[in-house]
Design a protein around this nucleic acid. Structure first.
Length: 274
DNA sequence: TCGGCTTTTCCTGGTT
DNA sequence: AAACCAGGAAAAGCCG
């Protein structure tokens, strides 16, 4: 449920990849990793906006709640502001999830440490990253919820009957295909930048280079955004991924849906290469 | 303009 | 039934 790939993409992507200057972390990446404590100095009162979002992701993940079910923009606040919110404020900001959040932050305020499992994410300052896709964002004209329903982008537009499988290839809009970043590099960079990966893809086996798409359509939309192609789908993205098998950039992982593995010709994904 | 390369689009058929 | 996988075919788009 929480990993449904096609639901409420816009809100999450807007919150995560949008023009806001901070990004939530990827909590999903953490499952399966040993827990760890927040650093002592990271008491919630002193959290940055980024850390607030990170905490949000973690709580949602802990409770198996789809992170996109709450409006992250309501938490575009720093730790000091967060700690000053009342129970009612949380309810207003996040609905029923608000009580979970309120409870969590109340405990953190007391303990000054996070007892939740947050995995072994590298909490690096935003600036330390050379963003692999600095142009990636979701301008409102593209991800305006009023324009885009929560349905996946693969849906035919309401005005066009579903004739997409007709043999006469429809007159396609010209797509430019800027070289520079290949698809597999784009995927790799998402994996390597958890701060910018809102649970889109996660490592299954970090040392072996095995990873899994958590939100396949969201990744496809992100890729489409990068390529200026609003009709990108996971179906099409995955076809491109399959071409990588022959080239040794990816290796097949049989029997596991949405799971891929970097091959011998993929560079830059190993920790030792970073 | 051409060829190579990568990706996109569409497709059939199979699997989970 | 929906989502995904496999891979053929053809075309788009970029680049040298």
């Amino acid at each position: 449920m929480s990993l449904t790939s096609t639901t409420t993409l816009d809100s999450q992507l807007t919150a995560t990849w949008g023009p806001a200057n901070t990004y939530p972390d990827v909590s999903m990446v953490m499952s399966g990793y040993p827990g760890r404590l927040w650093p002592q100095e990271s008491q919630p009162q002193f959290w940055s906006k980024y850390q607030v979002w990170e905490w949000l992701q973690q709580v949602m993940d802990m409770h198996q709640i789809d992170a996109s079910s709450i409006p992250f923009q309501n938490f575009d606040i720093d730790g000091h502001q967060l700690c000053s919110l009342s129970y009612q404020d949380f309810i207003r900001a996040a609905g029923s999830v608000g009580q979970i959040l309120f409870h969590s932050i109340s405990e953190l305020k007391w303990s000054g440490q996070c007892h939740v499992e947050i995995g072994q994410l590298e909490i690096k300052p935003e600036i330390d990253f050379s963003c692999p896709f600095p142009e990636v964002s979701y301008p409102p004209e593209i991800y305006d919820p009023l324009i885009h329903s929560l349905a996946p982008a693969v849906s035919p537009t309401p005005s066009s009957p579903d004739i997409k499988r007709s043999y006469s290839r429809p007159h396609q809009v010209k797509k430019h295909n800027p070289r520079g970043t290949h698809l597999w590099e784009f995927i790799r960079d998402i994996l390597l930048n958890p701060e910018r990966n809102p649970g889109l893809i996660k490592w299954e086996d970090r040392t072996e280079g095995v990873f899994r798409f958590l939100k396949s359509e969201a990744v496809a939309q992100l890729w489409g955004k990068k390529k200026n192609n609003s009709s990108m789908t996971y179906e099409k993205l995955s076809r491109a991924m399959r071409y990588y098998y022959k080239r040794g950039i990816l290796e097949r992982v049989d029997g596991r849906r949405l799971v891929y593995k970097f091959g011998k010709n993929a560079r830059g994904w190993r920790e030792s290469e970073k």
